[in-house]
Design a protein around this nucleic acid. Sequence first.
DNA 1: ATGAGGGCATAAGCTGAAGTTATGAGTGAC
DNA 2: GTCACTCATAACTTCAGCTTATGCCCTCAT
Lengths: 311, 311
Amino acid sequence: MSDSLPVPLAHRVPDLAALELLLAVARLGSLGRAARELGITQPAASGRVRSMERLLGVALVERSPRGSRLTDAGVLVTDWARRIVEAAEAFDAGAQALRSRRDSRLRVVASMTIAEYLMPTWLVALRAERPGTAVSLLAGNSAAVAERLRAGEADLGFVEGLQVPPGLDGVVVGRDRLMVVAAPGHPWARRRAPLEPGELAATPLVLRERGSGTRQVLDAALAAHGGLAEPLLELASTTAAKAAAVGGAGPSVLSELAVGEELAARRLVEIPVADLELRRDLRAVWPAGHYPAGPARDLLGLTWSPAGQRA
Amino acid sequence: MSDSLPVPLAHRVPDLAALELLLAVARLGSLGRAARELGITQPAASGRVRSMERLLGVALVERSPRGSRLTDAGVLVTDWARRIVEAAEAFDAGAQALRSRRDSRLRVVASMTIAEYLMPTWLVALRAERPGTAVSLLAGNSAAVAERLRAGEADLGFVEGLQVPPGLDGVVVGRDRLMVVAAPGHPWARRRAPLEPGELAATPLVLRERGSGTRQVLDAALAAHGGLAEPLLELASTTAAKAAAVGGAGPSVLSELAVGEELAARRLVEIPVADLELRRDLRAVWPAGHYPAGPARDLLGLTWSPAGQRA
DNA sequence: ATGAGGGCATAAGCTGAAGTTATGAGTGAC
DNA sequence: GTCACTCATAACTTCAGCTTATGCCCTCAT
C-alpha cells in the first residue's frame, strides 16, 4: 500500500524520438522509410512504435505488407504529438541562440517578455527561411538593450515600451496588452460589471518588481486613478507572478503573451476593466541611422505581420 | 566526409524527465527537493541537470550550499521548457481518454477538429478541477456524434456545424473561422486588395474531402458566388491539407484552430477575403431533454468561456 | 509460375545511459 | 562544535534500446 509518488509525466508520454518517428511514419507511409529518414534501422523503428503503443494502450499504426497507415486513434495522437515536437523545435532554436554567444552572424538583444514568448517562434521561422544563420540571443531590460546596440555589441534589438530609447531607430512589430487576471475561484471572476480603474488601483495585486516593463505601464495607466496600491507580492519573474496568481494568492496584471495557456486551460480568467488602456507597443530597434541589413533584415522581415498584431 | 543525416531533434533537446526536473528545481529552489518530488535520488537529479547543461552548452542552475537558483539563461530555458511540458500534459490527457474506452464515468464524442485542437486543453482543465474523472474520447463526424448520443453510448458530444443535429439539444461553446491561407511565396500573399469571393470560388484549392465539415461550410458560403471550382487536391485530413499548402501546392481553406502555429511561424499567411462569412459555431450537444449532469456538466462548464470565443 | 523487392516481425547479442548506494565537503544556525 | 541542509564524486548495476541476421508475407514484373 505504498502511497506512491505521482508517476512522472515522462513515464506516461513517449519520448521525443518516438514522437518524431510517429510523425515520419504518418508522412512517409512506411516504418522502414521513416526509420531511414531518422537514421535508425527498421527493427528499431518497429520496436519504438510498438513500445509507444504499449505505453498508450492504443493501436496507432496499421501495418500491412505494403506499408503502414495511421489508425483513427493514431491520427489524433499524431496531431497531439506534433504540438510537442513543435514546442521542442522552438526550444531548440532558442537554446542554440543562447549557446552561440560570439562569432554569430546575427546578434540579437531582446527584452525578457519578447525573448521568452516570441523569439523562439521567430527563430524557427528564420531557420526555415535562411538555414545556417547563426543567431545569438541575449535578454535584458530596455536600457540594457539600448546599451548593447549603441556599443555595437548587437545587431538588432527588441523592446516592449512606450517609446523608442534615445539613440535608436525602430518600428513597431506588434502590440501587447496587459490583462487583469485572477484564479477562477476569486470573487472578481464572478463579477458581472467590469472593474473600475479606481478599484483596480486600490487593490493589492501580485506584481512584477518595480522597474519591469509591465510594472511601468501599469503605474502610468493608473496614475490618474489614485496610483497603484502597495502590492500584495512583488516577484522577480513573470512566471513567478503567474504561478502565484494561479495558486490563488491574488489578482495579477500580466501580458497577454504570458497567460495564453493559462486562460485556455482555465487556470486563470481575465477580469474586464472599464476604460483603461493597457496596450504597449513591441518594437524592433537598431542604432539610429543604421537600418538593418543582411541577417538582421531577414529576421526583421519575419516579425512584421504575424502573431502579435492580432489583438 | 559523411554527408550525415540531420541530427534528430531528440538528440538536441533534453528529454521530458530532464525538463520536468528543471521546472521542479525552478519552483522548489533546490536540486534535492526537486529530486524528492520526482521520486529520484539527489545524485540522479544532479546528473540530469549536468548533462542537460552539457547538451545545451549553457549553465542553467547556480548551485550553492544553501540551494540552487536559475541563471539568466536558465530562466529563459525553463520558460521554453514549460511549453514542451504543457504540450506533453495535453498529450497525456488526450491519450488517457483514448485508452479508457469502457467503464468511464464520462464518455465524450467529438468532431475531428474539436478532438484535435480543443479537447486536450479541456481535458487538462477538467483533470485539474476534478482529478480522477475517467474520460473516454471518440472522434467522428457530426452524424456519428449524433448517432452515439442518441444510442446512449456517449454522455456529451461536440460538433462544429451550422445547426444542432436532430434529436439533440446544444449550446454554442465557441466559434471557429475558416481562413484562406497560402505559402508565403504564393502570389496571393503579395496582393494588396482583399480577394473577391468570386476569385476564390474560381480558383482550384487544396481542400479536405467532400463531406468534411470544413468543405460543407465553404461550399455553402461560395454557392452564391458561382460555386467551388474543382479542387487542386482533395485530402483526407486537415493535417495533410495543411502540409500541402505549406509545401506550396496551392492555397487552402482551413480552420483558424488548425493553422495558428503555421501563421505564427510564417509557414503560411492568411489571405484576406472581402465580404465572406466563413464562421461556424462550435457546439456542445446532448440527447434532447437530458441536460448534462455530473462529470458531463463539469466538462461543459469548462468549455463555455475560454479560447474559442476570442475571435 | 517464379523470382525480385519492399514491407514488417522476431531473435540474439551488445552497449551505454542513467539509476542506485555510499561518501565527503561546504555553509549556516544554534 | 554539532546538526541540518546543500551539492559533488565514485563505484556498481541494471535495463532499454540499438544492431545484425534472419524469415515470412505480399505484389508486381518477367
